[in-house]
């Protein structure tokens, strides 16, 4: 999903030269995900918006030092998440990314031999625009993402963001790849369970 290296070098040059259109495009592409992830880390949206705004300013001030070793998105998210983690520390807040031991929504789904108690059925009619319980499926999905525990929410948002690969997500959050995969799977299980409850 990475842009070509040439594209990123060009974008860096535009940003370093203060090109507003290039910046605005980048801002609209990533600002929403940055705010969601930072909200998970700092605990409230208002603080997250401040952190992300500071992050964007730092990105613009340091763009000349971007060397293309990570993707541009990977580099930007690392800057923003570092600011979020410092803010959380200052506020005495910590988010555990430890994946060990936590129950998931399938804890009671299997019998003693590991077979389904109730077989899942195909979701033939689950489409983004379908209305269930008065809301579009996509709106239910958004609500389910927002209800996730912070670590799962941070991982599922970052893994859904274009231009970031798995290694960059792990580096930005400071977690192992194995840990990230467990959190991602749990997050999906929770969103799946929320949808399944509506059917």
């Amino acid at each position: 999903m990475r842009d070509g290296i040439g594209d990123e070098t060009r974008l860096r040059t535009l940003l370093a030269a203060g090109d507003r259109a290039a910046f605005e495009r980048l801002y609209r592409q990533h600002n929403g995900a940055m705010i969601r992830v930072c909200t998970a880390i700092v605990g409230n949206r208002a603080a997250a918006e401040e952190v992300v705004q500071d992050g964007w300013i730092a990105i613009l001030q340091n763009i000349g030092g971007f060397e293309g070793r990570a993707s541009l998105a990977g580099w930007m998210f690392a800057i923003v998440l570092n600011k979020a983690k410092s803010r959380a520390r200052r506020d005495g807040r910590s988010v555990s990314f430890d994946a060990g031991g936590e129950e998931n929504s399938l804890a009671a789904a299997f019998d003693g031999r590991g077979r389904w108690k109730d077989m899942p059925e195909l979701w033939d009619e689950v489409t983004p625009e379908r209305i269930l319980a008065g809301r579009r499926v996509l709106d239910h999905v958004t609500a389910a993402i927002e209800a996730l525990p912070p670590a799962q929410r941070a991982v599922i948002v970052l893994r859904g963001q274009q231009g970031l690969d798995a290694a960059e997500v792990c580096a930005a959050l400071g977690i192992s790849e194995g840990n990230m995969r467990v959190l991602l799977h749990r997050a999906r299980l929770a969103v799946r369970a929320a949808l399944d409850d509506l059917l």
Partner: peptide, 27 residues
């Protein structure tokens, strides 16, 4: 049952990415 479940997880992944993209469009 497992075939259906894996299909549901795939749909969940795709819907999640669509919901996040939609959020980005309004961000």
């Amino acid at each position: 049952g497992c075939s259906a479940f894996v299909g549901q997880i795939r749909q969940t992944r795709d819907l999640t990415e669509a919901a996040l993209r939609e959020g980005t469009a309004h961000a």
